[in-house]
Simulated assay, not measured.
Amino acid sequence: MSPSVVVLDYGSGNLRSVVRAVERAGADVVLTGDFTAALEADGLVVPGVGAYAACMAGLRAIKGERIIGRRLAGGRPVLGICVGMQILFSRGVEHGVETVGCEEWPGEVSRLQADVVPHMGWNTVSVPQGSALFAGVEDQRFYFVHSYAARSWDLETNDRTAAPLVTWAEHGGDRFVAAVENGPLWATQFHPEKSGDAGAALLRNWVDSLR
């Protein structure tokens, strides 16, 4: 049986390419904003493009932050992509406007401090040992399109819980979080659905983790 995956439809763009990419990775995919369906699927993908505040408004309109929170409380996998990763942090600051995020991780999403913004194109990433998400593609390049990012990792863990695996990237001398694996919550700042064979392999790794 293929794992069931919901790609969360909350008004963000670029959803069809995400659906197709996750289908190719071996999942049974439904695009919906339905609360129950999103809660009960084997995996949930939270995509996102555009402004942080607009994404949070769309997410809250369908109680998406509650869906994410309830899934994670039950150990059920969630994958955030691009702004779908950024909204997992405590807050985002764009053009002087601060927006409260889903608060799954502490920290702030802010504008990249580089001469050229947005960061657009292929880039390498620095993957920690033991990554399941990047298994087999640790040395590959991935496709980024963003002006904002989490530029620090603020979550503190104790000896009783496994520390999250944080993957980093750099643009114009500014280092930022490129991906996180934190129990059932995984996320990427880059677009795996636009990252060719490497992105396809990464999505297969996530879908395989749902089996």
Rank of each mutant, 00 (worst) to 15 (best):
A37V: 04
V93I: 11
L31P: 01
G48E: 02
A73E: 11
E40C: 05
G121A: 08
E94L: 11
G50K: 10
K63S: 13
E98P: 00
R70V: 15
V46F: 00
E94H: 05
L59A: 12
I62P: 00
A53P: 08
C82K: 07
E94D: 04
L31R: 12
G96D: 04
G84H: 05
C102R: 02
I81F: 03
V100W: 02
A38H: 04
R66P: 08
A25H: 06
L44Y: 04
A57W: 12
A57I: 07
V29Q: 00
G74L: 15
H95S: 07
I67S: 01
V22H: 03
S4N: 13
G48Q: 00
V45I: 13
S110D: 05
D42K: 08
H119C: 09
R24H: 12
M85E: 09
D28M: 11
L79E: 04
W105I: 02
G58F: 08
S110W: 04
H95L: 11
M120F: 11
R70I: 15
C55A: 14
S4R: 15
I62G: 02
I68C: 05
T36K: 09
V6H: 15
P106K: 04
Q113W: 06
M85D: 10
G75S: 09
V19F: 12
P106A: 02
T32H: 01
R20S: 14
V97A: 12
A38G: 09
N14S: 15
A114S: 12
A51M: 11
Y52A: 02
A41Y: 06
E98V: 07
V19T: 14
D42T: 09
I62T: 06
D28W: 08
P118N: 06
G96I: 01
I67E: 04
F89D: 09
G74R: 05
D34Y: 03
M85R: 00
D9K: 14
M85K: 03
I67C: 00
G80F: 01
M120N: 09
L44D: 03
R76W: 11
I68Q: 08
R76K: 08
R20D: 13
A61C: 05
A54G: 10
V29R: 08
F35Q: 06
V97S: 10
A27V: 13
E40H: 11
G96R: 01
D115N: 09
A21G: 11
A41I: 02
L39R: 10
G64I: 04
S90T: 05
E103C: 07
S12G: 14
V117R: 14
L79D: 04
